[in-house]
Design a binder for these strands. Structure first.
Lengths: 263, 263
DNA sequence: GGCGGATATCGTCAAACTGACGACAACCCA
DNA sequence: TGGGTTGTCGTCAGTTTGACGATATCCGCC
């Protein structure tokens, strides 16, 4: 059962024990973006059993010789046409990070399957093209999923959204939703969309521009819409996308009736 | 190769595809406690290859039919004699949560192996008994590991410590290191040990006792040592151990030279 | 019993930060 | 040119922090 593993091993004394289980492993991707002021998640329609025809997060089985990140990128590209830039784990637009692992029991009718979930934060872009095991790929506003997602993907999505909501409180990660250069108002729009709340423009501007090591002015102006043109900023160079640069953090407004967020 | 999986499946159309990889899965546990004012981690000496004789985090292979949490608890008990209470994922002393998943490539000389790491926060207690695949189990002060840990356990430990340091900033999780009833000074000692910094007793007392939904006085006094006896507290009933009850959070002092923490 | 040492708890105060909101600047369109 | 819209800067009261003084209540010891 462990032929491949043992073939790479010099001594039998150093092989994986025979009593150990071996599990199929999938990666599932919670891909989030901000479109028209609302947080959207990327879902696909399943072409195959189980849960055929139902909506699901993009994902699939890890192939031998692949890393988990590679599998996440490959499945995303196969099923949705989305290509994750190689630098997506660095600073700037796009951010890919591991969320957590689910399973192996009670989540797949085919048997025990482990799923490693990834969280992708991406700028808005055109509708991706479906392919692979997926019939259609589309952005769905978070909270308006028309039906239950396949497997335990509803739980995975909830965990991913909560992770994103929590992380933009103290990290520069909100910029992962923005193009390389963006205005303070664009960044504020990300916070409002991800949190689902209103944020005061003046106080946000003070905090965002006044935090050392966060934003860097480009000197140029972003024009277009009505109103005074806004200054363009980019992320400060060399920022760790998950570093706690907002110190003290920018806390979400406490909705009186809502329970405290938990991780 | 997928006999077990397919045997549980009604239709071949709904089986795990044959191209999918199947991986041995281990769980590794970062067990932390506070002893004598310092953060300690539980390590074992390996009895078997690979890395025989070297220190490692307790852990081992997931068996068929087990959940990941069950495997973590079983390996911990087999190798160190430590029994994790069943309620360890609730509030109060002991806390077990998933950290993240490592692998499958380049971390085990036996071949591709996936490792799901868990973080355990526990009150101090007597030296556990070694057993199973481990020669000796012992508490080691974090930062004073005499040698490199086996596999990628050095990285896993660093990730676990950083998770603990970050989470006690906003959650009541520091109480997981304390007995069911504890004094404010004991709780402060946990913060000092985990963060490795000094915390002002008066300001900490104000914040800890003044935060709604965090501590609940028992009315009794904890005596013993020199000085005025302190009031005993317990966690407020029904608190989510990872809820953001400290709002705004209790931030670690910023060491001028140190880089900002990242997750 | 009294005293010094140690720890717990309560107060004080200036600095920083937040949240609410006024005011003005700089653009678009009609 | 004027009104609408959005960006940026200021003001101000209330909250929170960090630093630290002061007092309370225990211990051990003489």
């Amino acid at each position: 059962m462990y032929g491949r593993v043992m073939a790479r091993t010099a001594h039998a004394s150093s092989a994986v024990p025979e009593t150990a289980g071996s599990f199929p492993v999938t990666v599932d991707v919670v891909a989030l973006t901000v479109r028209a002021g609302a947080l959207h998640v990327l879902v696909v329609d399943r072409l195959l059993e189980p849960f055929r025809g139902q909506s699901a997060l993009p994902g699939g089985f890890v192939l031998p010789g692949e890393t988990l990140e590679q599998a996440a990128g490959r499945e995303l590209e196969e099923e949705t046409g989305l290509t994750v830039p190689a630098r997506a784990t660095g600073a700037g637009p796009w951010h890919l990070e591991q969320l957590r692992t689910y399973g192996p029991l009670g989540r797949d009718p085919r048997g025990p399957v482990l799923s490693v979930a990834y969280l992708l934060l991406a700028p808005a872009f055109g509708l991706p093209a479906a392919g692979g095991d997926a019939a259609e790929a589309r952005w769905v506003p978070v909270g308006e999923e028309d039906e239950r997602l396949a497997f335990d993907h509803g739980q995975i999505l909830a965990d991913g959204v909560e992770r994103a909501r929590a992380k933009i409180e103290y990290s520069p990660l909100a910029a992962a939703f923005c193009p390389p250069e963006f205005t303070v108002a664009e960044l504020r729009g990300v916070y409002e969309a991800v949190w689902g709340t209103q944020v005061d423009a003046r106080n946000f501007h003070r905090k965002a521009t006044g935090t050392p090591g966060f934003l860097e002015p480009t000197g140029r102006l972003g024009g277009g819409g009505p109103g005074r043109p806004a200054e363009l900023y980019r992320l400060a160079p060399g920022v760790d996308p998950t570093a706690a640069v907002l110190h003290p953090p920018l806390l979400r407004p406490v909705s009186p009736g809502r329970a405290a967020p938990s991780a």
